[in-house]
Every structure is written in C-alpha cells, then in structure tokens.
Amino acid sequence: MTTPLGARYTNARALGVAGVLAALTVVLAVLALGLGAVATPAAQVWAALWGGGDDLTRQLVLDLRLPRVGVSLLCGAMFAASGAMMQGVIRNPLASPDIIGVGAGAGLAATVFLLAWPAAPPGGLPWAALAGAWGGFGLVLLLSREWRGAGGLHPVRLALVGVAVAAALGAVQQLVLVRAPDGLGSALTFLTGTVYGADAGRLLSVLPWALVLLPAALLLSRTLDVLNLGEDLATGLGTRVGPARLLSLGVGVALAGAAVTGAGILGFVGLLAPHLARLLVGAKHGRMLPVSMLLGALLVLAADTLGRALLPPLEVPAGIFTTLVGAPYFLYLLKRTA
C-alpha cells in the first residue's frame, strides 16, 4: 500500500488536516445557521453568535437553529469516535456501531424507554440507550461465540452476525413505532437517523456525554495503538490487554449509545469517518481519533444541511445521505476484506 498523496504521516500534517477540517466545519455551521424559511446572511449569523444582531435573528439562530447544528456536530463526532475505537479494539475494518448491533440496540432501548415512560426526565434517555447499546453488542458477541474474547474476535463472523442482529433489532424498533400511539410514534422517528426537530433540550442531554466521552476517547488513543498490535504481540510485550480492551470498548459503546439519543442511527458515519481519517493522517490513534471526530461532525452537518437545502420546504433526513455514501463504501470494504 502506498501513502496517499505521496506524503508522510506526521504530526504537522495531522495538525494541518485538523485545521482545515475545523475551518470547514465553522464555515458550514455558519451557513447552516443561516438556512431556513427566513434566510439569514452569514454576517448576521456571525454577529448573532457573538451576542450582536437584533432579537429576532438571535432567537432564530441561537434558540432554533443552533441546537440542531450542535446536535449534528456532537453526534457526528461521537459516532465517528465510536467507530474508530471499535475498529481499533476489535481489529476489524468493518466494525462500526451501526454495523455490530450497538446502534440498533441503543435505538430500540431508547424507543421503548420513551414510549413506556413518556414523563421520564430527559437525562434518563441516554442511560436507557447505553443499556440497549450494551445489550445489542452483547447479543452480537454471544451469537458470534466470541464472548470470552480469548482467541480474539473473528472479523468477518462478527460483522455478519452484527448486520443480522442490527437488522432484527431495527425491525423490532419499527414494529414498536408502528404500534405506538399516533403522534408519539412520529415524534420518535428521529431515532431512525435524523437531527430534524433537535431542540435545546436534546442538545443539553447529549452535551455532558460528549464532554466526558470524547476526551476519554482521546486519552485512550495510546491504549488503542497497543490493542492494534494484536493479542499475541501486545500480551507478549508485557501490556495489559484485557482491561485495556474492556475500557476502550466501554467508551466506544457509550459514545454510540449517547449519539443515538441525539440523532438516531446515522448510518455508516462510524464506518466512513475513521477510514477517511486513516487515509488522511495515518493509523496512529493520537492523530486519527481527533480527525475522525472532526470528519464525523462535518459529515453529519453536511448531510443535514444538504437535506434541508435540496428540496425546501421538504427535509431529507441526514441519515439518508450518510447511508447513500456509506453503503457503497461498506460493500467495497467487504470485497477487500473477503
């Protein structure tokens, strides 16, 4: 394999890439904040963000549009980080929260939680999703008979079982939604992958998780590098593989669970972003993880913005765009792995 763009992977390069991505994200965020029934010029958006502008613009930009953009960015980053960590821990290029049952488990648990307990405090939702995420992931591990993890997880079997479990859990979720009382069910359609209707409440329920888990993921980047060496070598070199794997998986699963409560299952973000990041800055997690997060954030924001701008006033769910891009890439990866 040759190095793309003929460049070596260095810290300077990673910083450059991260800088460009961050700038792109800011520009796109400002554009997205101006988009809507009442178009707001970028300059006014910028002013509103810094506390200027008139009250109406401020309300429009900060209260109505900012939460949606914020949820897009956070959930995109969390899905991407989750995928990057799972690919690292399981050492499987096909691993991604939506593919190995984590997203579907979280989605189903969140749906059931909201329907069974409509009056629940908003902070409870992520915990339910987290439990569901572990449930889905546990099911996949059990069914692929790799739950002990002793011989390492078998790449293709895990992915296949994961796809099947995700499909089954997704079907159950659809069934629950169909059976749900009118109105309530449609209010939950976001769980199938869109940031439509994301409000300040949803942003505030996702935010603390992002603030804890994203830095935690970065702190584990060295640990993920070690896990990437494979069980035999990592163990042979005298590192603690068991606890390292458990902790990394725990953070990865929690990231996906929390992200699902914000934006539902945004297909393939957790697969695409880390792969793109590796192409851009190499496989070291210290560089790859932050770039993955930026890419995931940018990807989801772009998908949502595109969905809003394409056929107004119709809104195409962001998950559709991410899936349209991600599914062919998944097929390509499958072909290459097999």
Partner: peptide, 8 residues
C-alpha cells in the same frame, strides 16, 4: 497501558 495520548 493507559498512558496518555502524548509523550509516552
């Protein structure tokens, strides 16, 4: 195994 992201 759990050293931080920089300067290992």
């Amino acid at each position: 195994t759990f050293s931080g992201m920089l300067g290992l």
